[in-house]
Amino acid sequence: MHEAKYLKVARIVQNRIKDGTYKTQTPLPDQEALAKELGVSRLTVKKALDGLERKGLVYKQSGLGTFVLGDIPIKESNDAAANGFFGLQEELGRDHISSEVLHFTIDFPDENIQKNLRIKNNEPVYNILRLRRYDKKPFILEHTYMPVKLVPNLDYVILNDSIYEYLHKQLKLKFSVAYRKIKAAKADQWDQEFLKAKKDDLILELEQIIWLSNGQPIEYSTSRNRFNERNYVVLETKSF
């Protein structure tokens, strides 16, 4: 699969920030100018800049444009935006992320899954457990439930690549809302086996429900990583 246009635009802008072409605390060219230069739509540029803002590279000033933020002293390489709608491959690069499917079945949902996905007990769900590796090292243990009626023909080929890319590009589904809860937990047997965590290690767990634009929940999932492998951050901008 080819890299999405907005990711290419984001990479170009990020490289220009890195090499000093776009300097700290200065405005970027406006979206129309960037779109014309790079041969893409203004919407593609906006999506690229939105992603860079979540990464903490730029910030937007209402009526003034988008500015280069510059270095954030407390920022670390394993920081991830807590308010993003993208998968790991988009966030960290297709060449760096691989998936190992540990469990994949179609089940009838228990009461908790029924409540979280707003489905009945006779509506089957995919029950998916994947180990996501970053540069071939264990990174995230991801347990996902999705209604079969909303995600037809999900298979191992897709699971070993990108579920979100299949949802967005093939099924043309659009996310609208995500509720995320981040908490600390003790390492369980799965964490010890697949994430190589020690018995007393702390685990960071991201629990989330994602809704489609029509208000139907499409995903309930938990993502677990060792405490020192990944942080979740939010960049908030406000003009006072």
Rank of each mutant, 00 (worst) to 15 (best):
M1H: 13
M1Q: 08
M1L: 02
L7Q: 13
A10H: 05
A10P: 00
I12D: 09
V13S: 03
Q14V: 01
R16P: 02
G20V: 05
T24P: 06
L28C: 10
E32S: 13
G39Q: 10
R42D: 03
R42M: 12
L43W: 14
T44M: 09
V45R: 11
A48V: 01
R54I: 03
K55P: 00
G56H: 07
K60E: 05
Q61Y: 05
G65Q: 09
L69P: 04
D71K: 08
E76N: 05
A82D: 00
G84T: 08
F86K: 12
G87N: 10
G93L: 09
G93D: 07
D95P: 01
I97A: 02
V101Y: 14
V101E: 10
L102H: 12
L102C: 13
H103I: 06
T105Q: 14
I106E: 14
E111P: 00
I113M: 02
R118N: 07
V125Q: 03
V125F: 02
R130D: 06
L131D: 07
Y134M: 06
K136W: 00
K136V: 09
K137D: 06
F139A: 07
M146N: 10
P152D: 03
N153G: 11
L154W: 05
D155V: 06
V157P: 03
S162I: 05
Y164A: 00
Y166A: 01
H168E: 08
F175D: 02
F175A: 12
S176V: 02
S176I: 01
A178W: 04
R180A: 13
K183F: 08
A185E: 15
A187F: 01
Q192S: 06
F194E: 01
L195F: 03
K199M: 04
D201F: 04
E207H: 08
E207S: 15
Q216V: 08
I218V: 15
E219L: 07
E219T: 12
Y220P: 01
T222N: 09
S223D: 07
R226L: 13
F227W: 09
F227P: 02
Y232W: 14
Y232C: 10
V234N: 07
T237N: 05
